[in-house]
Design a protein around this nucleic acid. Structure first.
Length: 278
DNA sequence: AAGAGATACAACCGCGGAGTC
DNA sequence: CGACTCCGCGGTTGTATCTCT
């Protein structure tokens, strides 16, 4: 009872906040429309330079002083998912795929957490990968589950509960209550997850199970040590060893002026820059 | 060669948590 | 302690590119 009231209280506060934010947004829109959509080469250069100057923390500040006319959020996203040095690009390696499968079974859709175990990969990348990966698997599964299929055999050992789950999954999917790739996962609370008698993860585990069985399971040591070697944490990157002391406005100002003097030296050498040839 | 469908990737949005005032 | 602000996360959407027919 008390909890209910508390809940309502907080949701009221939230609503008010949202309204305020909306208003603020509208005001901003009236003043100057924030840019949206794909980033240009020029914008990238500017952003990288400003991140180099001020670190990858105060995104609102960076967004303002850079004159990019983007939101802090947008700047952060661009940096984290695209401009951050050390980002790997290209196809996931089999090891990475296996790791993602393993970790997803363990943690569910905790993409940023999973990303931390995959150096050079971002949560967004993994999320996208999983999305397409799972879509494929779901389709394959559908094919196998066709009436004539004998799948019930092949998965019998771990399928004890999944028949009903599959049904409810379908219904939830169709009712729009859950996105098709929301597996729920174990996160860190398996027990809680099954409270309502349903775990999306179970279903996908079925799918993953076969794959994991074919390929050797990844050992935790492998996860915890070997995979966390040299790359910075991309999911929540902190610029070098966090430049906390730099956060003083005075210093910012002096940086700003020296930066302005240099007028974009274009010292930016990002090996993975999409616009650098090769 | 052209169109359709599938896939991959980039980016935005809304929400909740955490820090600060 | 409450209000405010910013950041990060997960979900979703839009679009460019690839593949198949």
């Amino acid at each position: 009872m008390v909890k209910q009231a508390e809940k309502e209280h907080y949701s009221n506060i939230r609503d008010k906040e949202r309204q305020r934010e909306k208003k603020k947004k509208e005001m901003n829109m009236m003043q100057e429309e924030n840019r949206k959509g794909p980033w240009t080469e020029q914008e990238d250069i500017i952003l990288v330079n400003f991140v180099h100057l001020f670190g990858d923390r105060r995104w609102d500040f960076i967004a303002k002083v850079s004159g990019l006319n983007r939101t802090g959020k947008s700047c952060r996203l661009r940096w984290v998912n695209y401009l951050h040095p050390g980002l790997k690009r290209g196809k996931m390696t089999p090891q990475e795929e296996r790791l993602v499968t393993e970790l997803h079974a363990k943690w569910g859709n905790r993409w940023s957490k999973i990303a931390r175990k995959l150096p050079g990969r971002t949560d967004n990348e993994i999320k996208n990968y999983w999305r397409t990966h799972m879509r494929k698997k779901a389709q394959e599964k559908k094919r196998h589950v066709s009436p004539s299929s004998s799948c019930s055999n092949c998965c019998s050992s771990s399928m004890t509960t999944t028949n009903t789950q599959d049904v409810s999954f379908e219904s939830r999917m169709s009712s729009g209550k859950v996105s098709f790739y929301d597996t729920g996962g174990n996160r860190e609370m398996n027990q809680e997850e099954t409270k309502d008698g349903y775990s999306m993860d179970d279903i996908w585990k079925e799918i993953d199970h076969s794959a994991v069985n074919i390929i050797q399971p990844v050992k935790d040591i492998y996860l915890e040590q070997s995979y966390c070697l040299s790359y910075p944490n991309l999911a929540s990157p902190s610029w070098e060893s966090s430049l906390d002391s730099i956060w003083k406005m005075e210093e910012d100002k002096s940086k700003m002026s020296s930066f302005a003097n240099d007028q974009f030296p274009f010292c930016f050498q990002h090996s993975r820059s999409p616009w650098s040839s090769g």
